[in-house]
Amino acid sequence: MAELKGWKDLPIGGLVLEPGTAKKYRTGTWRVLRPVFQPENCISCMFCWLYCPDQSIVVELVDGKPKMKGFDYYSCKGCGLCANVCPKNIDPKTKQPVAEEKRAIIMKPETDFVEE
């Protein structure tokens, strides 16, 4: 987070005087569970991109088609909606979750990444 300002240096009334400032707010620090992308299983269906409430899915156009590339951890709050809607995480026949290594998105505790 940017350095906090004193009361003399702030606009009055809690007003925000420029647009798009939510982008500067690092909501990634709220994350308890981290979505981890396993590209080898991804079909780039864009469900995660559609459902993500924080526009934290990184997408690139490849040959005119959108390709899921991973997560923007600066803004991702770790809500897990992406993993929840990912069709590759469920076996279509049994409707049960598939083994972790076969999924496109897995949720890992943030504590696994403390060294980062």
């Binding site: 906090l4 300002k5 004193g6 009361w7 702030l10 009055i12 009334g13 809690g14």
Partner: peptide, 13 residues
């Protein structure tokens, strides 16, 4: 992180 500062501004006004 900021509410307190905004209250201080009201005191000043």
């Amino acid at each position: 992180d900021y509410y307190f500062e905004h209250k201080r501004q009201q005191v000043e006004a």
